[in-house]
Design a protein around this nucleic acid. Sequence first.
DNA 1: AAGCATTTCAAACGCTAGTTTGAATCGGTG
DNA 2: CACCGATTCAAACTAGCGTTTGAAATGCTT
Lengths: 194, 194
Amino acid sequence: MRILEVAGPIFAEKGRRETTIRDIVQAAGVNQAAVNYHFRDKDGLYAEVLRLATHTAREQEPAEDAPAEQRLRDLVRTSVERLLGHQRQAWHTRLMLRELEEPSPAFVSLVDEIVGRIMPRVERIVAELNPRLGEEERWLCCHSLMSHCNGMPKAEFFLERSRPGWGERAAEERIRIMTDHISRFCLAAIGGLE
Amino acid sequence: MRILEVAGPIFAEKGRRETTIRDIVQAAGVNQAAVNYHFRDKDGLYAEVLRLATHTAREQEPAEDAPAEQRLRDLVRTSVERLLGHQRQAWHTRLMLRELEEPSPAFVSLVDEIVGRIMPRVERIVAELNPRLGEEERWLCCHSLMSHCNGMPKAEFFLERSRPGWGERAAEERIRIMTDHISRFCLAAIGGLE
DNA sequence: AAGCATTTCAAACGCTAGTTTGAATCGGTG
DNA sequence: CACCGATTCAAACTAGCGTTTGAAATGCTT
């Protein structure tokens, strides 16, 4: 379906509310009524896009037998790349972050699946990095890590403002620096707690 | 001006786009044309609200002679409280975070002022906590800290989902736990780097 | 090829939200 | 009190958006 393909990136870029059906059908080169015909209404299309995003966003599972440091770094790099890079699948993450700000009904029913897929992996990494952590503290560390991975690249706007010239560096370099920093920061934190 | 007082919280809660002029004038108990008369148009009002928010958001400057650990904790607590608490001035922060997601033209011209007010203070804390850090690393740590303070409380939605029952605890307890964790996490990270 | 369900289309409908308008009201000044 | 600029108000205007509609086109089955 042509509509589904173009709708994802548009929703991700402009937001659910700001995106108009006319935007989408124009990009898809189809008639305006097509959305209502195939997806009932705008929300129906959005829910479908969101479902698609969560299902295709399952990253290539990295080697689970690598040392925890390496797995953490992979995790960080994936997140950072998705937000700073300009890849095809970047819109998945952007859409998720929008939802996090202001969850839509369609999202609420999907978040459990996302949590269930990511959290165990992160928990395992944190547990290996610091076996002395209690259960609640490990849980908090997982969220620290994830919020860090998503929040910092997203706030690139502020980065640029507090250090002019940052935005002019090559994307690949920005990704490397930020991945590097977040990994080291979180490794130091998790390893140093308790 | 009655309008300015009520507009801030409404914009913060519903977002710039979703907030209607009718929402605001109804809450203010004034006629609809008042917004256009006094602020030219909706964007004019929004810009004014934003300006007001950045100017009144200057927190009570905490004791600058306290040890760096204490100052960091104060900083964290202020952020967390603003996002998890239900205080009067919480809307300032919420509005800022919305802008961070999707900066409006009005915001861009104000962000330098915000950065200029917060960053030096954070830089000083980080520098005292770990004098061995290089300049760029210190800068990154500052943003780690701030993104952490804002991102984690904002993602409470995920917290709740990965640990049901979290949301039912008293607000004061959630604030304490999160402040505690973020402070310790960042202290361990900053102190342990290099 | 005829018939039928499915899909596409241009056009219009209804609603909502920002803005404009022109009259009414207010508040100070000569 | 009369005047006049500033402000308030109810009402209408305008534009954009989601949705509906009914006809046209398409494609599959017999």
